[in-house]
């Protein structure tokens, strides 16, 4: 196993640990993307992120991968800190495998964390918007119920 693979493995494991005990095993093992959407999303996008962090940081690949991860964690009962903490898990994973985190990588991880936080906020805002939309629609029903035109 190459060092990069080892790092990825540890990063995924760390992220899985943020889920309840009973869940982590299933999330980690079931490989079918449709039976296990959460595990699949984690695995696939963490892989992409690591490749980019080690590589060229292509925004066209980083942004969707980060979005998929954060979008999911934004609705999973995590506090904001817990929701984006997985980014820092990489630092630990790198440290465990290679004994030190190169400065350049550390900087990129910090940057990624900030991006994740932005993304988290925009997801939460979107959730509130969606709620507001549904409430507006309900208000229309209510108005209609009173006998007004829609």
């Amino acid at each position: 196993m190459s060092a990069e693979q080892a790092i990825l493995q540890r990063w995924i494991e760390r992220t899985l640990k943020s889920y309840p005990d009973g869940m982590a095993g299933f999330l980690g093992e079931e490989r079918d993307p449709f039976r296990n959407p959460v595990g699949h999303t984690l695995r696939e996008n963490l892989t992409t992120l690591l490749q980019e962090l080690m590589g060229t940081m292509d925004q066209k690949r980083v942004a969707p991968a980060l979005d998929a991860l954060v979008r999911m964690r934004a609705v999973q009962n995590f506090s904001p800190a817990e929701a984006v903490r997985f980014v820092f898990g990489l630092r630990q994973a790198v440290f465990e495998v290679s004994g030190a985190v190169p400065d350049s990588l550390a900087t990129r991880i910090d940057e990624l964390a900030l991006m994740a936080f932005d993304q988290y906020m925009s997801c939460r805002e979107q959730i509130f918007e969606l709620r507001a939309k549904e409430i507006r629609r309900r208000a229309q029903y209510a108005a209609f119920e009173e006998g007004e035109e829609p």
């Binding site: 009973g22 299933f26 999330l27 296990n36 999973q76």
Partner: peptide, 12 residues
């Protein structure tokens, strides 16, 4: 693992 609420929420 057949329940979408379990899959989505991870709440045992």
């Amino acid at each position: 693992d057949k329940c979408q609420f379990y899959l989505g929420s991870a709440d045992p």
